[in-house]
């Protein structure tokens, strides 16, 4: 009798545990599937812009104005990441805008590999916030100078989630071998990027743009250092294109305003160049 009672008690307890487990796991699954559906079916495809050293969130104002000239254009959100990872936001992503511009800048915008690595980590913080807030599953990115390096390091070190894909990356005057003008002197950053190149997304299309103001480069970054990007990307990503611009506005800091580059962005990065905001 005692044994039978114990058996019934055990059965009741088992049913109670199983019931609780079933209810909580079904709730968890439904919430998971619901968020996955939002991300999967999202039509948003932002263009994320990352400035180089010494530049702040206003760095791309002219570029965005130029891109938006032909129509009402896309909205602009600016995010600055503080050293403690805190985000300050200005501007907005307009309702119904599927291709907004989002600038991610860093409060600590000093130069040097150590800081670039920290910026890549800060970028990840901002990126996690943006994907959580706007539920996009694909995006394109433009990095000016060290901004291109930050994006490359981000791809190599921090992208472990295949639910969000970077489709296109354009780097403008990004020094993949820092200030070195010859690959005979590879920097630690270049070596690290070469080692981790297999982690770059296989479906990514990369365009690296170099400016030529004088024989050696754009006045600040050596041409050979920009061209070192070919070794990092070629063969590791879907496509890699190396372009050079010369003439007026080919100087390093003028590259984001260079009309040839603006046209290239319209042609290669934007899905709806020069068109009005999608409704």
């Amino acid at each position: 009798m005692k044994k039978q009672l114990r058996l019934w008690l055990l059965l009741a307890l088992g049913l109670l545990v199983a019931g609780t487990l079933t209810i909580s796991s079904v709730q968890w699954m439904k919430s998971n599937v619901s968020s996955a559906r939002v991300v999967h079916n999202s039509r948003m495809h932002p263009v994320i812009l990352v400035p180089g050293s010494s530049a702040n969130q206003e760095r791309f104002n002219t570029l965005v104005t130029l891109l938006n000239q032909q129509a009402r254009g896309h909205s602009l959100l600016k995010v600055t990441v503080a050293e403690n990872g805190k985000l300050s936001l200005s501007g907005e992503v307009a309702a119904g805008d599927n291709e907004p511009y989002i600038v991610v800048a860093f409060a600590n915008n000093s130069d040097g590999y150590t800081n670039i690595k920290r910026q890549a980590k800060w970028f990840k913080t901002a990126f996690s916030y943006l994907t959580g807030r706007y539920h996009f599953n694909r995006f394109s990115a433009i990095g000016h100078s060290n901004g291109g390096l930050v994006l490359t390091l981000f791809l190599e070190k921090y992208v472990d989630d295949d639910t969000v894909t970077m489709n296109k990356l354009m780097t403008l005057g990004s020094p993949f071998n820092l200030e070195e003008s010859s690959l005979a002197n590879p920097t630690q950053m270049y070596t690290d990027m070469m080692k981790a190149r297999t982690k770059l997304p296989k479906s990514l299309d990369v365009i690296s743009v170099a400016g030529i103001e004088n024989a050696s480069g754009d006045g600040i970054v050596p041409l050979a250092s920009v061209e070192a990007g070919r070794n990092i990307f070629f063969g590791a990503v879907h496509s890699f294109t190396q372009l050079t611009v010369s003439g007026t506005d080919a100087q390093h800091s003028a590259l984001p305003q260079n009309q040839q580059i603006v046209d290239m962005i319209k042609q290669n990065i934007l899905s709806n160049p020069g068109r009005d905001r999608q409704q």
Partner: peptide, 25 residues
Amino acid sequence: VFEVPPTTPGPLIALLGTNGDWRAG
């Protein structure tokens, strides 16, 4: 069709993997 943790107790796999279809459970 939905991925569930591999350690999901047996009969719950069908229930969760179908996003809560009790008939599958």
